[in-house]
């Protein structure tokens, strides 16, 4: 009896390890496949011979990227977008999350702001009115069209607000007794303590800006203004750019398979996330759990 119980438990453990490993492999294989495809030569890529290991290893696709001016322009636009967008998002989260975390006694208008914020989260004007607005404001083709509309993120503000709320209120009282003003208490005491949550928000903001493509696709009219994801999107998914290839690019396509070339671009585009993410994973799990479990 005791023995059979142990056997059934052991089978369960084996099944769990197998299934988890299967899940892990499922998540990694498409990415490994893309990397392999980007490093294979034209004939094997076109013939569909590439599995998880490069066939007839070549770096031609990456060499082609290095000669691709549009790719670097787009990369520059993406970096600019992240460099402007992330600090702005984080700043708004702090300066709005902190006042909203104060009690109604300290900040009597708190609930009015709160309801307004939640309302903008629940209801939106939709695609066309936003498009018309950006057009009317003269923001077409400007980087600010990609940053200002999403500068105030209600969800992240609420996340940070809940984090501030859960910090002990005695900190506030003690600082007041020492004569610190409201601004000093916020910047010198509460903000440093909320760094794990702020790091999470910065990560989410980075991912959001890095991955965004649709806004640039509709607001950016000139090809030289689009970020990397929009460039990839137009290139790979619509493949409508192929008609307007420059002679240089035609040459490139002659030696590199379109498949490996695209795979290389896709891989380079996901690289920043693949590199940053394992190091910040700890923070975001912490941030999500604290932000969402709040009763």
């Amino acid at each position: 009896m005791v023995k059979s119980k142990a056997v059934s438990d052991r089978i369960l453990i084996v099944v769990c390890y197998t299934l988890v490993t299967l899940g892990v492999l499922l998540c990694l294989l498409p990415i490994v496949h893309t990397l392999a495809l980007s490093l294979s030569d034209k004939a094997s890529a076109t013939a569909g011979l590439v599995g998880l290991w490069p066939v007839n290893f070549t770096g031609a696709a990456y060499a082609a990227i290095l000669r691709d001016k549009l790719f670097f322009t787009a990369l520059g636009n993406s970096l600019l977008r992240v460099a402007l967008g992330v600090p702005i998002n984080v700043l708004f989260c702090i300066i709005m999350g902190y006042p909203l975390s104060r009690s109604r006694k300290q900040f009597p208008q708190r609930n009015i702001y709160m309801w307004f914020l939640v309302f903008t989260m629940l209801f939106s004007g939709g695609m066309i009115p936003s498009y018309v607005l950006i057009d009317e404001l003269g923001l077409m083709d400007s980087i600010w069209a990609l940053i200002l509309p999403s500068a105030v993120g209600a969800y992240n503000i609420i996340l940070l607000m809940n984090y501030f709320k859960n910090l002990p209120g005695e900190l506030d009282e003690a600082a007041r007794i020492d004569g610190a003003g409201a601004m000093r208490i916020m910047w010198n005491i509460y903000v440093p303590l909320a760094l794990p949550c702020i790091a999470t928000i910065a990560l989410f903001s980075f991912v959001g800006h890095w991955n965004a493509w649709f806004d640039a696709a509709i607001y950016m009219e000139s090809q030289s203004k689009i970020p990397l994801q929009t460039y990839i999107q137009q290139l790979v998914v619509e493949s409508s750019v192929s008609s307007s290839l420059s002679p240089e690019e035609q040459m490139m396509l002659a030696e590199v398979s379109g498949k490996s070339f695209n795979a290389a671009k896709v891989f380079v585009t996901m690289l920043p996330l693949l590199l940053v993410y394992p190091f910040v994973q700890r923070y975001f799990v912490q941030g999500i759990v604290i932000g969402s479990v709040k009763g």
Binding site: F92, I95, M96, Y98, P99, L100, R102, Q106, F107, P108, Q109, Y113, F116, L117, T120, F123, S124, G125, G126, I128, P129, S130, V132, L133, L137, L148, P149, A151, V152, G181, A182, M183
Partner: peptide
Amino acid sequence: EVLSYNLLMLPGMILLLIFAVLPMVG
């Protein structure tokens, strides 16, 4: 203190009015 909290909320509220409320009017 109340004044400073309101001032902190102001820039974000202006952005929301422009980029969230105006499209609703639209």
